[in-house]
């Protein structure tokens, strides 16, 4: 399959939230003064009655959203992943997840995609943190179109959801007509030699790696595991049974992210092998986005090399 034009997934959020807000006046955006950067500008302009901005006060932002949700509103709290997961963390736990309130934490700048901003703005811990909080659903879409579909799915789901988008542009993978279900992996390619399980901005790398491998006689299954929690256990079990060898690829610390979630399923099966590619438990720096992935081994070439190593008879 061919990859399309490059567009950040935060744009998918920004476009879909306007459509959702027009359909349902209870859908609100609650910004913390980085709305422009998180692509809520159109919502603010077109739906001013449903737009709130509480200033650079993330803890309060989460609490206000919780209060709004108790009164029937569906607030989308909008910030960067580093702040949405860490500055707001305890408020999300206490006031949103514990009472299972219908609040969505919609975060741009996931992983190392705020590349030039440096380590302070790169969120490599966020999904791991959110994943350990009961009642939370954690999602990272792989492109503009799946971002739109998954934002809609999150709005339709009654409960707390953490959504993570990219700052930087990544290629389109899907078309407008592809459907996504929370908690259900999307299989992009079938294969029995190795399974490459990725999410977010690394799905494109998995697709390219699988194509390279196919040319070399290795058939890779590619799964877009957009929902890290609840993890699609059935898809992981099938991948272990069919392929035995699994490579996980993520723009997140290899500790406690997608790789950990997949490895836990395999470990409990007592079968298969899981090789985690991702951020190597180290802080980033200001550098080009692709370079930051490269220094952590998150590249097409490395996925291919690992696949060869794992499938060597």
């Amino acid at each position: 399959m061919s990859l399309g034009k490059k567009i950040p997934t935060r744009d998918g959020f920004g476009d879909e939230i306007v459509a959702l807000g027009k359909e349902n006046k209870n859908i609100l955006v609650v910004d913390a003064d980085i709305g422009k950067s998180c692509k809520t500008g159109a919502f603010r302009k077109e739906l001013p009655e449903q737009y709130l901005n509480v200033g650079i006060a993330e803890q309060n932002c989460a609490g206000v959203a919780a209060g709004l949700a108790t009164c029937g509103k569906i607030p989308f709290v909008v910030t960067y992943a580093a702040f949405g997961s860490m500055r707001m963390c305890e408020m999300i736990r206490q006031e949103i997840a514990y009472p299972h309130l219908n609040v969505k934490i919609a975060c741009s700048h996931g992983g190392v995609t705020p590349a030039n901003d440096g380590a302070s703005h790169q969120a490599i811990e966020d999904m791991g943190i959110l994943r350990t909080i009961p009642n939370m659903t954690v999602i990272m879409p792989a492109d503009y179109w799946s971002a739109r579909k998954l934002v809609r799915a999150a709005a339709e789901y009654d409960g707390p959801v953490y959504l993570r988008f990219t700052r930087d542009a990544i290629p389109e993978i899907y078309g407008e007509d592809v459907e996504f279900e929370i908690g259900k992996a999307y299989q992009l390619r079938d294969g029995k030699d190795v399974a490459i399980v990725a999410n977010g901005d690394t799905v494109r790398l998995a697709i390219e790696a699988a194509e390279t491998l196919a040319a070399q006689g290795i058939e890779a299954r590619v799964l877009d595991m957009h929902t890290v929690k609840p993890i699609d256990t059935d898809a992981v079990v099938a991948a272990v049974q069919d392929c035995q060898q699994i490579i996980t690829v993520e723009d997140h610390n290899i500790i406690n992210g997608l790789g950990s979630a997949v490895a836990c399923v395999a470990a409990e099966m007592g079968k298969g092998r899981v090789w985690r590619l991702g951020i190597q438990d180290q802080f980033g720096q200001s550098a080009p986005y692709e370079r930051l992935l490269e220094v952590n081994g998150v590249t097409v070439g490395n996925i291919v090399d690992v696949a060869h190593k794992l499938t060597k008879k």
Binding site: L52, Q59, V64, G67, Q94, E95, Y98
Partner: peptide
């Protein structure tokens, strides 16, 4: 009306509820 216990968090929630009343 809201779960509390971790100090400092209730007032933001109360403000959210009061804001919902204004919006509606």
């Amino acid at each position: 009306d809201i779960s509390t216990g971790s100090l400092g968090q209730g007032l933001a929630c109360a403000a959210g509820m009061a804001l919902a009343a204004k919006l509606d």
